[in-house]
């Protein structure tokens, strides 16, 4: 990477400690631990069904692991619910697009500002000065995001009508609007062409460089992973088989075996 980073990588911000997640008899994640460092871009890779999305869902509070714990900024995340974890500063995007389909692009991004808006329904109903000021300020922030992501021309389009690549962009915009410390990006570039992927990488790097947002992203495109991530975790069958800088992971024998399909014991 050649960009100048405003934030150098610091200590651990997110610590996953020995978590195990089972659905009935199916083990999705087994005794997995790793640390995400402050301001880094961390990739999670692995074959299909390795438990990558389940891992993000555990961090985000959608799933509750049966064993182990997750620490965020040194604090154990024990009251597991996505909205409580959002309040602590972890936001995300979803693998299969979870946008508000019937709402416009700008309204989707505005929902991302939820935690920056505190006016209650009475203040909104009566349009008190506090409520209108808050609405105006947050709208301004969202317009900046619209400009940053270069999606001004689709600002008022309901997202359900947009092509897939643009929807992915809007979802990133909504996650950015939260200004969370940690963003979990579940396959942000899935289904995109080379051009779109390059653009998406540029946005992710720019946000990380300028705002220092810690990113945890799941990605299948090895080229992308090697280019943008600081560290890579490799999952296979719900277990971590490698963890380290991209170059080290690429040459790791376990990883090569997992991807080329060597028989498991």
């Amino acid at each position: 990477m050649t960009q100048v980073r405003n934030f150098s990588i610091g200590g651990p911000v997110l610590e996953v400690q020995n978590i195990s997640l089972r659905f009935g008899g199916v083990k999705a994640i087994t005794d997995t631990s790793f640390k995400v460092l402050m301001h880094e871009i961390r990739a999670i890779i692995g074959p299909n069904g390795a438990g990558k999305s389940s891992l993000l869902n555990c961090i985000n509070g959608i799933y509750k692991p049966q064993e182990g714990k997750i620490l965020f900024k040194g604090e154990v995340l024990d009251r597991i619910s996505p909205n409580i974890i959002a309040r602590k500063g972890i936001s995300r995007t979803f693998q299969n697009l979870a946008l508000f389909k019937r709402m416009s692009v700008i309204d989707n991004i505005l929902v991302g500002r939820r935690l920056h808006m505190s006016a209650n329904f009475l203040q909104v109903a009566f349009q008190t000065p506090a409520a209108t000021r808050e609405e105006r300020e947050n709208r301004e922030r969202c317009e900046e995001i619209v400009d940053f992501l270069e999606i001004r021309d689709i600002r008022d389009t309901p997202v359900g009508r947009l092509p897939y690549g643009l929807q992915k962009k809007v979802e990133l915009g909504r996650a950015l609007a939260t200004e969370a410390d940690v963003l979990l990006l579940d396959e942000p570039m899935a289904g995109m062409n080379v051009e779109e992927k390059r653009e998406m990488c540029r946005f992710i790097l720019k946000v990380n460089d300028e705002l220092g947002t810690t990113m945890v992203l799941i990605e299948h495109d090895m080229g992308v992973v090697m280019d943008i991530s600081d560290n890579v975790v490799v999952l296979d069958y719900g277990k971590i088989i490698a963890d380290g800088p991209p170059e080290a992971v690429r040459t790791n024998q376990n990883v090569i075996d997992a991807y080329l399909g060597v028989a498991h014991d």
Partner: peptide, 23 residues
């Protein structure tokens, strides 16, 4: 305003709404 946006977010995709901090 924000009240309606929160409602519509819950309507369109509740899990995403929750991940944005909506109870």
């Amino acid at each position: 305003g924000s009240v309606g946006r929160n409602w519509m977010a819950v309507r369109d995709m509740d899990i995403a709404a929750e991940s944005m901090g909506i109870s």
